[in-house]
C-alpha cells in the first residue's frame, strides 16, 4: 500500500505535483468518485427501470439547465451578495442534478451515452455532457436565456415553488417515492429549495414595491416567463407512469398548492397574474401543435438550449477521455 501521506508536503508546495498525486485535491468537486458510493440503487419491485431513469433525468435536467443559467450570473450580479446567492442556488441545483443523473444511470445504464473505451468520464457526466438538446428532458422555463436580475428572480420563484412541491411529495412520509434513492435526494432538495423560494419571494416583493423602474422590470420578467408556466403542470406519459408505479409525482397534482404559494407572493406584491397564453411547440417541429407531444419533457426545446449546451459541453466533448 503506498503511503500517500509522504507526498503531502509536496502537494501543498506545488499545485502540479498535488494534481498528479491526488486529482481530487487540486480542485473541489472535480473528482471521479461515484456520488452514490455504497448507496443501494436496486430498482424497487414492479418499477420499470427505464421509466424510473427517464423520470430522474427529467428532474435532473431541470436542475442542471437552470444551474447553468444561474451560473452565468457569477461575477455579473448587481451586487456581491446577490452574486453569491445566485451561485449558491446554482450549486445546490447542480448537486441535485448530479445525484439524479447518477440515479438515472444506475437504474437504466442503457440510457447513458457510450464513450470510447478507456474514458474515465462517470455516468452522470456522460449524461450531462454527451446528450444533445433533443435528448434533454427539462422544462423550457429552465432554459430561457437570462434577462435582467428581475427576470431571474421571477424564474427562481416560479421554478423553486414548483420543484419544492414536487420534491416535498417525493420525500413526505405519506406520499414518499418507493425509490429510496429518489426520496432521499428529494428530502435534501426540499431543505435547499426552501431557501431558494424564500430568496426569490422576498426579492419579488422588494422589486414590486421598490421603484417604478424595479416594478416595471419585474412585471416585464413575469410577462416574459409566464408562457412557460403552464408546461410545468402538464403531465408527461413518463411522469404519469412513474406516479402510477409509486416512484414519481404527477405534476398536475401539485398545481393547486403551487398556485396558492404564487398567489401569496403576487398578492403581497400587488401584482396581477399575467393573462398570456402558454407557449407551444419548439423550434424544431414546425407545424405540429398537437398537445403534450411538443414540450421540453419530450426533448422539444427553444433554440436557447442548444446554445447553452454548446457552451456547457464543448470542453468535455473535445476530450472524451479527459480527466479534470
Amino acid at each position: 500500500m503506498p503511503d500517500v501521506r509522504t507526498h503531502e508536503p509536496d502537494d501543498h508546495d506545488n499545485a502540479y505535483s498535488g494534481l498528479l498525486v491526488n486529482d481530487a485535491h487540486w480542485a473541489f468537486g472535480t473528482d471521479f468518485e461515484d456520488p452514490l458510493a455504497g448507496v443501494d440503487t436496486t430498482v424497487p419491485d414492479g418499477v420499470d427501470p427505464a421509466t424510473l431513469a427517464t423520470y430522474c433525468l427529467m428532474l435532473g435536467d431541470d436542475a442542471l439547465v437552470l444551474s447553468q443559467r444561474l451560473g452565468e450570473w457569477c461575477s455579473n450580479a448587481p451586487d456581491l451578495e446577490e452574486d453569491i446567492a445566485l451561485s449558491n442556488i446554482a450549486l445546490d441545483l447542480l448537486g441535485q442534478a448530479r445525484l439524479l443523473l447518477a440515479r438515472a444511470a444506475a437504474a437504466d445504464p442503457s440510457q447513458v451515452p457510450a464513450l470510447p473505451d478507456g474514458s474515465p468520464v462517470p455516468d452522470e457526466d456522460r449524461l450531462a455532457f454527451f446528450r444533445d438538446a433533443r435528448q434533454f428532458r427539462n422544462v423550457r422555463l429552465a432554459e430561457v436565456p437570462n434577462g435582467d436580475f428581475a427576470q431571474t428572480v421571477v424564474r427562481i420563484l416560479l421554478f423553486s415553488s414548483w420543484r419544492l412541491a414536487l420534491l416535498d411529495r417525493l420525500s413526505d412520509p405519506l406520499t414518499r417515492s418507493r425509490d429510496a434513492v429518489l426520496a432521499a435526494v428529494a428530502a435534501k432538495g426540499v431543505k435547499e429549495l426552501t431557501y431558494h423560494r424564500d430568496f426569490a419571494g422576498r426579492w419579488f416583493l422588494t422589486l414590486a414595491r421598490g421603484t417604478e423602474e424595479s416594478r416595471r422590470r419585474l412585471l416585464a420578467g413575469l410577462d416574459e416567463l409566464w408562457p412557460y408556466w403552464a408546461e410545468l403542470f402538464e403531465t408527461h406519459d413518463i411522469e404519469r407512469a412513474a406516479a402510477l408505479a409509486g416512484v414519481g409525482v404527477d405534476p398536475a397534482g401539485v398545481a393547486a398548492d403551487v398556485e396558492a404559494v404564487l398567489d401569496q407572493v403576487l398578492m403581497a406584491s400587488g401584482v396581477d397574474r399575467p393573462v398570456l397564453p402558454p407557449v407551444v411547440g419548439g423550434h424544431d417541429d414546425p407545424g405540429h401543435h398537437e398537445h403534450a407531444a411538443h414540450q421540453g419533457r419530450d426533448g422539444v426545446h427553444t433554440e436557447a438550449l442548444a446554445e447553452l449546451l454548446a457552451e456547457m459541453q464543448v470542453v468535455a466533448r473535445a476530450h472524451p477521455r479527459g480527466q479534470w
Partner: peptide, 10 residues
C-alpha cells in the same frame, strides 16, 4: 451537508 457540497471528495 448540501447536495452540491464540493468538499465531499476532499
Amino acid at each position: 451537508t448540501y447536495s452540491g457540497c464540493p468538499a465531499m471528495a476532499a
